[in-house]
Amino acid sequence: MNAATLAERLCAYLPVLLAGAAHTLLVSAVAIVAGFVLGAVLLGLSQARGGRGLLPALVRAYVSFFRGTPLLAQLLMMFYLPSAAGVELPPLAVAMAAMAANSAAFQCEILRAGLSAVPDGQIEAALAFGIAPRQVFRYVQLPQVARAVWPAVVSEAIDVIKNSAIVSVIAVADLARSGRQIVAANFRPLEVYVTVGLSYLLMTAAVFAAGTWIARRMGKGRAISARVVNRTAIRT
């Protein structure tokens, strides 16, 4: 293979791949953020009334389903079942919804593990000193949970980016699909798909590096000084 032509070909792929990558990052970002919010909501619901009753059971069923079945199956269901009922949904919206719903289940578990990592004794001491439950959550639990779950959240973000390749199956113009389009045109599957693979690798490596850098920043600013606690507390 002529080296110069390879480089030329790679340059030709670039715009298509970049457009695809943009879609990949869009879908992933929405999935991660919406998944976090939904996951937190699910966790809150699951703690209602001490974890007993219908609502917590529903949350457990949700988490079990979305973590235990393949994302591809979930995506196909969310795409084809509405059309059976006559509702035509745009593929991009379905992709974002499915990935968010999926990620929410994982992030719910991550948050739950993070919350339970804060020793009961610390919460007990705070309540014994008359600190209100809302303040206990804000000043005792939240700071520690945030630091504890960060690595797992970064890991989940990387998984979401990788999983997003699946949405190409329902015709979303992401990075994987851009690859298929190029291959359909120039019949060079090996070099195109390897390029696509390396692009994903670049994305996941970047997210990992960013995550690690933020983790180090969080570690350095560990100390919540008396000033911060006091300054924000006076308003109560």
């Binding site: 990788k162 699946i166 190409s168 690859g179 090996l190 390897v194 696509v196 693979g197 996941t204």
Partner: peptide, 18 residues
């Protein structure tokens, strides 16, 4: 670091050309 789908494409669609 690479999605499994892309791995599949490389092996199933890419290797034949090699």
């Amino acid at each position: 670091g690479v999605p499994f789908l892309v791995h599949l494409f490389i092996v199933y669609f890419g290797l034949p050309s090699a």
